[in-house]
Design a protein around this nucleic acid. Structure first.
Lengths: 189, 189
DNA sequence: AGGAGACTAGACAGACCTGTCTGGTATCGT
DNA sequence: ACGATACCAGACAGGTCTGTCTAGTCTCCT
């Protein structure tokens, strides 16, 4: 009944299961390290079905990146209710909390970009698109807070964000959190 | 003559040629995307010779990471002649110049870490070792400059460094440079 | 009733991967 | 002279990769 249709044995549509499995594996182990065979096996989907929904592996990777972007947009949208400066603090606090978790493996965009050197590749363009949105969020919140130079400060916040996602992956979370907190205080007070 | 020995047809030892070729290809295209066959073909080295010097591909990757670390240590050592604060400025200015160049493809340590999820892996440990050294450089220079809190400020500089290397790879170099310059001024004045 | 579309299982092709092995050559130190 | 070492070319094994294809099932819509 309801949204649950066809076959009925497995939860969710085949496409959804593939994308969820790919998301989990790509994030945890990297894109090039995970093959199609493993994704379809763990998703419980036939190969022909996979290639019906995603013409190539790169299309799946792009869908992965775009879905991560979509998730972050939804998440951030829920944090923009109160005062702009508090929203910014909430966003960075969330990233620190997430980065301190056990399953943290860095930023999916930064990590995926490392595996796609060509800036003209569709995957890289999806990443660039996400970064444009991310910078706009910072700029708009700064401007709404009455910051005198929202444009350049947004670039600094993006710098801080990138340092954050890398640092939580490679260094001690507690140390990075302290540094981020102090750096953020110096940038937006 | 002199250092040029054996066979005489190709420049440098076989090991050196392999490491140089691997460095070029790994940095430009990523570790998992480049196979042994291609490395030995471009280096002009037999497969048996390769496996004589590097027991496995991971050993080559670790050698690549360690050599990059060694190069950076040499480079930084040459910048520590004058005043500490000027050395820090020189280091960040150099990273900005390098990041603005045409062949820039991000930080070899960050990029390689993205392809090695397991923190216990030898490659990851070599990367961690490099980051410890890097942080110490910042801390020592800050302390020598008489900074009141060299420890925590070093963490902030590492944050800035990571943001820098990612930003120059994924965003507009000029924008990142401006942001880095301003951020650095706020941190060390 | 019957066609379209989503799904299943699994064989297959052709390329590429790491790593081993054979067999032979050249140069060095002693 | 001789053994050790470094090097060469290239076949080979066993596995994995992406992507295609065959062949058939199920469900929904008209």
């Amino acid at each position: 009944m309801s949204a649950e249709t066809s076959k009925g044995s497995r939860p969710g549509s085949a496409r959804t299961r593939v994308l969820e499995t790919a998301t989990r594996l790509f994030y945890a182990e990297g894109v090039h390290s995970v093959g199609i065979d493993r994704i379809i096996a763990e998703a419980g989907v036939a190969k022909a079905t996979f290639y019906h929904h995603f013409p190539s592996k790169d299309d799946l990777v792009r869908a992965y990146v775009e879905e991560q972007s979509s998730l972050q947009r939804t998440l951030v949208a829920g944090m923009r209710a109160g005062a702009p400066r508090e929203s910014l603090r909430d966003i960075f606090a969330f990233m620190c909390d997430f980065g301190s978790g056990p399953g943290y493996r860095g930023c999916p965009f930064v990590n995926t970009a490392a595996e796609y050197p060509d800036p003209a590749h569709p995957v890289r363009q999806a990443i660039a698109e996400h970064r444009r949105w991310n910078r706009e969020v910072y700029r708009d919140l700064l401007a709404a807070d009455g910051h005198p130079d929202a444009e350049r400060t947004a670039d600094i916040l993006l710098l801080l964000r990138d340092g954050l996602v890398v640092g939580f992956d490679l260094d001690h979370p507690a140390t990075v959190r302290t540094a981020v907190t102090e750096a953020l205080a110096r940038v937006i007070g």
